[in-house]
Amino acid sequence: MSGVIGFLRRVGSRTVDMVWRLGFATRFFGLVLLYSGQSFRRLHLTIREIYFAGVLSLLIILVSGLFVGMVLGLQGYETLQRFGSSDALGVLVALSLTRELGPVVAGLLFASRAGSAITAEIGLMKVTEQLKAMDMMAVSPIARVVAPRFWGGVVSMPLLAALFTAMGILGGWLIGVVFIGVDDGAFWSQMQAAVDFRYDVMNGVIKSIVFGVAVSLIAVFEGYDCTPTAEGVSRAITRTVVSSALAILALDFVLTSFMFRGQS
């Protein structure tokens, strides 16, 4: 009996704790937006963060994109040729990448590469009292440290997702057309006929922007909110990756159901 009560009590306190953190995260988001002025006025701060979040993620994004596209090419061809429609390989590769895989996989990679780095950096600044020192120097750490990293992530993510998708399509083309021998013209023309710019490409871009906001916010929040110890930082990094992945998948479901509901 006491075990049940103890269990319920733990569940209850966890729930309260989560709601409390969510509220704090929301207020924090508001503060970040409020203090964003500086990251636009002093653009070089944000450009620096675009370098760390975007440029340093380039390699993993490009290589993964290529491989994901190549796998799609192989698997897609395998399935499509059973129905004698291997010409539609381009459509399959392009649609799955622009709509889903591009934003989602790029978002997951971004969370584990750039998101964790942002959390670690802000967390370490907190451990070594750099944030407090900044605050004592009458410089708001949210304006100077958090907001530029947030916007750097928000700007980088759609570009990375677009690069991932483009690389993936090239990977699918490489396997399908160059190695297997699907007709080059059919590959591109069927793709162009089936992929609509506003409907498919733009919705993918919108998804990647939303994921960029979510991952960047989670990363800066976990870093800012971490317990200022070595263990606290490592736990915050884990939380960043896990919550970002969950957020991306859940948001993807919500966005997909809004964007593609009841249509083709």
């Binding site: 070089h44 450009i47 620096r48 675009i50 370098y51 975007g54 440029v55 380039l58 392009a94 622009t98 980088s156 759609p158 570009l159 990375l160 677009a162 690069l163 998708t165 483009a166 690389m167 399509i169 591109w188 793709m191 162009q192 006929a193 992929v195 609509d196 710019f197 506003r198 409907y199 498919d200 490409v201 871009v205």
Partner: peptide, 29 residues
């Protein structure tokens, strides 16, 4: 040097978007 890299990143990102809009998709709608 950092600015150069970021500029490069933005350019190839924009190129990827352009590729998606012109080569992959079409303005059929």
């Amino acid at each position: 040097v950092l600015d150069l890299w970021v500029g490069f990143f933005v350019v190839i990102g924009a190129a990827a978007l352009l590729f998606l809009s012109l080569k992959v998709g079409s303005f059929s709608g």
